[in-house]
Design a protein around this nucleic acid. Structure first.
Length: 711
RNA sequence: GCGUCCUUAGCUCAGUGGUAGAGCGUCACAUUGACAUUGUGAAGGCCGGAGGUCCGAUCCCUCCAGGACGCACCA
């Protein structure tokens, strides 16, 4: 054996051997007799990385944890399938490319046009995809690349169109004119979950519409008050009881408005004046109040955040400017009673940072409160039941509560987007006719809906679209659905995990998409901060892999990281596990170089009754129990401790004399013991550090592959 | 407002109903050894605070303090 472990050379060579053997593909395992044809299946999909950039430590952690599960499953004889793929990540990718183009060419998407922009985005996505795939392979992930999928490829496009059509036919997808979250910067709608709240200081104005209006109201958005159609008060509020039910007219800065006073439980008596000016067109909450009281809707702001109200003071002005103008006008006429600074959470778009403007728009939605199917249950009820009944178990268990809270607050999901990159809404219009289907209908004059679908719509289908759905006879679908495990970061529990459960409930006959959800934490820097370019604290997994090995990088992300807890990572930590690789290499080298010349490899077994072998069996039981319980950090730590501090420090030391100076049989016994302990350790370490264990295994057992040895 | 998590060695974190562990760091000694080092040993912790349950609590319960996060509200 080489005196030094050449990380890069070995990891590259071993990866090639795995590729050639093809054991990541379960069909090959069965064909080669490695896996029994009727073995219990273990299927998992890789959460598809976005084609927006490169692999980061979060991906590396995900790959490490999942590869441990997969390699362990494969070694325990299961028919193991782990499907790779990438996500087109609609808004994220398009806005990324748009930003680049704006910077380098000073053009926006309308300057380029739909076709040219899409060409550029696809080009970017392709190169990004290639990089990411290369990086995923570098980490040693034993994925079945023959089944690779992309959320925007042909098979998945058919799945998306079929899903949309079926949901529409079931009455679960509808087109409706509702107030939606509009991102003026990205010029698109976004869903509730794509909003990030930022705390800012705002001025709360207490004012009257005009001097004769009897009720003062409080607002931070004076400019929207042109669109007020009601004033809401709490039903038990005696101050305003006399006005409830009346419709009052007011002259607001020169515009005549009609407001009905309504009583609504949602109003807080103690906030402001206890009276809320209701602007149905420009506030989600107000729109809901308006629905309850059948109030009219008056839009006064457009998609670009400009005032459309026919009022000379503000018409055509941006909302912020209009606010100042209205404030000044009211102030000059003595209509403002109070101005105070308050802390306010402003809704912004996650991807573009634009401040959300609620607007009434005609959009496509998924109805979560509508009963459907034979049982007459709603999607919300089914999503809740899937976890409540323990058909799906979430680990760590505490995230179940987070999930339920989200379900309880869930509203209809707006799935249409006004961006160009993504799956086109499979709906065609022809005069008054509307056609929903997977292909354009025959006949002249049909125009497809220009909108695209929320990226999570296609991601939601992932557990079955990767298995060949909508082809109901796809062999993979029958064998591997539902998946055994869904492993992902807790930060996309709502975005993704919940949407997969939703899609499965609706489209797969109420089935669950996977039996278990395992959520890992976020990788942060050693001070607990998020890794980001601007902070300059990014630790790149590829750099770490080249410097210390993919094995060491993987260990650093697994050991000492409890499920669901964030991982604080430092280069020192990776270096520490590189030292462990070196240690393991040297244990093997020492044993190898002391093999008795006349002893053929593996020709003599260790005495199974000796204390060292019994200890090893106990360790194997402990490690197996931890792996079965998804306690990878504990299994890894136990192995680390055993190999370094028992095997190397004590057992090898104790056998040194016998190995070097002992008589023939004594030497053989010493060697046999050490080799047995080493090989067993390699086996158990393999899911954690596949490269070095495979390499050493090949030296002691040439011609065989550790990755398919029996556990 | 509702909820969750965290608080354990100098630092970063595991862990357990029976007076605590890892990595990195510190100190002493040894070693050029299978080990771009490693080994042996040491220092260092009233396991955030206060109550409670228990024979026994760092672990379970309640409260408090500090930190992080999620959700809702945000007129």
């Amino acid at each position: 054996m080489e005196p030094r472990y050449d990380i890069k050379e070995v990891e590259a060579r071993i990866a090639e051997r795995w590729d050639e053997a093809g054991y990541a593909n379960p069909d090959i395992c069965v064909a080669q007799g490695v896996t029994a044809p009727d073995a219990e299946p273990f299927a998992m999909v890789l959460p598809p990385p976005n084609v927006t950039g490169t692999l980061h430590m979060g991906h590396a952690a995900m790959l490490a944890i999942e590869d441990i599960m997969v390699r362990y499953a494969r070694m325990t004889g299961k028919r193991t399938l782990w499907i790779p793929g990438t996500d087109h990540a609609a808004i994220a990718t398009q806005s990324r490319v748009e930003k680049d183009i704006a910077k380098s060419e000073g053009k926006n998407r309308y300057d380029l046009g739909r076709e040219e922009l899409l060409r550029r985005v696809h080009e970017f996505a392709q190169s990004s995809h290639d990089t990411i795939v290369r990086q995923v392979r570098r980490m040693g992930a034993s994925l079945d690349w023959s089944r690779e999928a992309y959320t925007l490829d042909e098979t998945r496009a058919l799945a998306v169109q079929t899903a949309f059509t079926r949901l529409y036919d079931m009455g679960l997808i509808y087109r409706g004119n509702r107030v939606v979250h509009w991102d003026p910067k990205g010029q698109t709608t976004i869903s509730d979950d794509e909003i990030v709240y930022e705390e800012r200081t705002a001025t709360l104005y207490t004012f009257r519409y005009d001097k004769d209006f009897p009720i003062p109201i409080a607002t931070t958005r004076l400019e929207t008050k042109f669109g007020d159609t009601a004033v809401a008060v709490h039903p038990s509020d005696a101050r305003y009881a006399q006005y409830v039910g009346k419709t009052l007219e007011a002259n607001f800065c020169g515009t005549l408005i009609k407001v009905t006073v309504v009583a609504d439980e949602s109003v807080e008596k103690d906030f402001g004046t206890g009276a809320l000016g209701v602007t149905p067109a420009h506030s989600m909450v107000d729109w809901e109040i308006a629905q309850r009281h059948a109030l009219p809707l008056v839009q006064v702001i457009d998609e670009h955040g400009r005032m459309t109200v026919p009022n000379d003071l503000v018409h055509g002005k941006k909302t912020a400017d209009a606010r100042a103008i209205v404030a000044e006008d009211l102030r000059s006429r003595g209509l403002i009673e109070k101005e105070e600074d308050i802390a306010q959470n402003v809704a912004t778009a996650e991807r573009t940072g634009g401040i959300i403007e609620p607007l009434p728009k005609l959009q496509w939605f998924i109805a979560v409160n509508k009963p459907f199917g034979a049982e007459g249950k709603t999607l919300k009820e089914r999503m809740r039941a899937a976890v409540e009944s323990s058909a799906i178990t979430i680990m760590p268990e505490r995230f179940s509560r987070v999930y339920f809270t989200w379900i309880d607050n869930l509203r209809d999901w707006c799935i249409s987007r006004q961006i160009w990159f993504g799956h086109r809404v499979p709906v065609w219009y022809n005069a008054d006719a509307v056609y929903v289907g997977t292909h354009m209908p025959d006949g002249e004059g049909w125009e497809q809906d220009p909108d695209t679908l929320d990226t999570w719509f296609s991601s939601g289908l992932w557990p079955f679209s990767t298995l060949g759905w909508p082809d109901e006879h796809a062999p993979d679908l029958a064998r591997y659905f539902p998946n055994a495990v869904m492993e992902t970061g807790y930060d996309i529990l709502f975005f993704w995990v919940a949407r997969m459960i939703l899609m499965s409930a609706a489209l797969m006959d109420g089935a669950i998409p996977f039996r278990r959800v395992y959520l890992h934490g976020l990788v942060r820097d050693d001070k607990g901060r998020k890794m980001s370019k601007s902070l300059g604290n990014i630790i790149d997994p590829l750099t770490m892999a080249d410097k210390y090995g993919a094995d060491a990088t993987r260990l650093s992300l697994v050991i000492g990281a409890a499920p669901g807890n964030d991982i604080k990572l430092s280069e020192d930590r990776v270096r520490g596990y590189r030292n462990f690789s070196t240690k393991l290499w040297n244990i093997a080298r020492f044993i190898d170089m002391n093999r008795p010349e006349d002893l053929t490899k593996g020709s003599r077994a260790a005495d199974a009754d000796c204390p060292e072998m019994k200890e090893l069996v106990a360790l194997a039981q402990e490690v197996t129990a931890h792996l079965d319980a998804f306690e990878f950090h504990l299994a890894g730590e136990a192995l680390y401790h055993y190999v370094w501090h028992r095997l190397a420090d004590e057992i090898v030391e104790a056998q040194k004399t016998a190995l070097r100076d002992g008589a023939g049989p004594e030497r053989e016994a010493a060697y046999a013991l050490l080799e047995s302990l080493l090989l067993a350790s390699l086996k158990m370490l393999h899911p954690f550090m596949p490269f070095i264990t495979e390499e050493i295994w090949g030296i002691f057992r040439p011609g065989t592959l550790l990755m398919v040895e029996a556990w």
